[in-house]
C-alpha cells in the first residue's frame, strides 16, 4: 500500500475543525508531538505553588494536573463569540442539563461580563462511587465567567465546578482571539487545572478527572463546531434561495425567449413551406 501523503493544514478543508498545537490535525500528529500538554503538578511545583499563592489561599494543594492546548475554530471571531451563547443544546451536550445566565453587565469600557450557571450530570467511575456515595446522586454545578471585549476582539472565559469541590476541582481558562495567520478563523488557548485534595485517592481522581475533562473538551468543541456550522449554513442558504429564484427567473426568460424564437422559426418554416408549395 502506498503511504498516505501528509495532509497539509490549510483552507482546502471545508469543514470547521478543532486542532491541537501547531495547527495540525490530531491524527497527523505523532504520539510524541502531543498538542495538549498535561503535566503533573509535582514536576511544576513552583508554577503551581506560585499560582495558588497568587490566589491567596491554601485551599488547593500545589498538586494536580495542568493542561494546555491551542485550538482553532473555523469561523470569524464575531461568529464564534455569537455561537458561544448559542451552543446549548447541541448533539454533543447531552451531559449538560440546564443553562442560565446569573449575572450580566456591560462595563464602562464596553466589555460584556457574564456569569453562566450550568448543571451537568455527574458520572463517576464505579470505584469512586464507593468512596463518595453521597455525591453520586448530585449533579455538578459549574460556573462559567466570561469577558467579551469587542474592541480587542477577544473573549476570556473561566470555568470551574462549585460543588463536589472536595472531591475534585476542575478549572479551565480559555482565551479566544483572531488567529494571527488567518483572520477569518478564531483560535482558542485553553488551560486547565485539575486537582483533588483527597488524601490517598487524589491521584486516581485526578487521572479520572483529566480523562473526563479531555472527553468533555472534545464534546464541547464538537458542539461548538456544530452550532457554528449551523450558523454559517444559515447565511449561505438564504443566498442559495435567492440564487435559485434568480435562476428560475432567468430560466423562465430563456424559456420565453426560446418559445418566441421557436414560434418565429416555425412561422418562418411555414412561410418557406408555403413558398415551396407556391
Amino acid at each position: 500500500m502506498v503511504p498516505a501523503a501528509p495532509r497539509t493544514p490549510g483552507p482546502a478543508r471545508s469543514r470547521l475543525h478543532w486542532e491541537g498545537a501547531g495547527l495540525r490535525r490530531p491524527e497527523v500528529r505523532g504520539r510524541r508531538r502531543r498538542g495538549r500538554k498535561c503535566v503533573r503538578g509535582r514536576s511544576r511545583k513552583r508554577g503551581a505553588r506560585g499560582r495558588a499563592a497568587g490566589r491567596g489561599g491554601p485551599w488547593r494543594e500545589p498538586m494536580g494536573k495542568h493542561c494546555a492546548s491551542l485550538g482553532l475554530l473555523r469561523g470569524p471571531w464575531d461568529q464564534v463569540f455569537a455561537a458561544f451563547w448559542q451552543r446549548y443544546p447541541n448533539p454533543y451536550s447531552k451531559h449538560v442539563l440546564t443553562e442560565d445566565i446569573v449575572h450580566r453587565e456591560v462595563t464602562a469600557d464596553q466589555k460584556l461580563l457574564s456569569r453562566r450557571l450550568l448543571t451537568k450530570t455527574n458520572r463517576m467511575p464505579r470505584w469512586a462511587e464507593r468512596f463518595f456515595p453521597a455525591n453520586v446522586a448530585h449533579s455538578v454545578y459549574i460556573l462559567e465567567d466570561s469577558i467579551v471585549d469587542p474592541k480587542n476582539r477577544t473573549m476570556t472565559t473561566y470555568t470551574w465546578n462549585i460543588n463536589h469541590a472536595r472531591l475534585m476541582v476542575v478549572e479551565e481558562r480559555c482565551v479566544y482571539c483572531v488567529n494571527p495567520e488567518n483572520s477569518s478563523w478564531t483560535q482558542v488557548r485553553r488551560e486547565a487545572w485539575i486537582s483533588s485534595s483527597l488524601f490517598g485517592v487524589s491521584r486516581a481522581i485526578q487521572e479520572f478527572g483529566l480523562a473526563r475533562f479531555k472527553s468533555n473538551v472534545t464534546k464541547s468543541t464538537k458542539g461548538f463546531e456544530y452550532v457554528l456550522a449551523k450558523m454559517q449554513g444559515e447565511a449561505p442558504s438564504k443566498t442559495l434561495v435567492e440564487t435559485a429564484k434568480e435562476a428560475t427567473e432567468k430560466a423562465k426568460e430563456t424559456a420565453l425567449a426560446a418559445t418566441e424564437k421557436a414560434k418565429d422559426l416555425a412561422s418562418k418554416a411555414a412561410t418557406k413551406k408555403k413558398q415551396q408549395y407556391v
Partner: peptide, 21 residues
C-alpha cells in the same frame, strides 16, 4: 441551595470552595 453567592468573578472564592461539597 446552589452555592453561587460570594464567588469572585473570574475565580473561585477560597472559603466557599472549601465549604461546598
Amino acid at each position: 441551595d446552589i452555592p453561587i453567592e460570594g464567588l469572585e468573578f473570574m475565580g473561585p472564592s477560597k472559603g466557599k470552595a472549601e465549604n461546598s461539597s
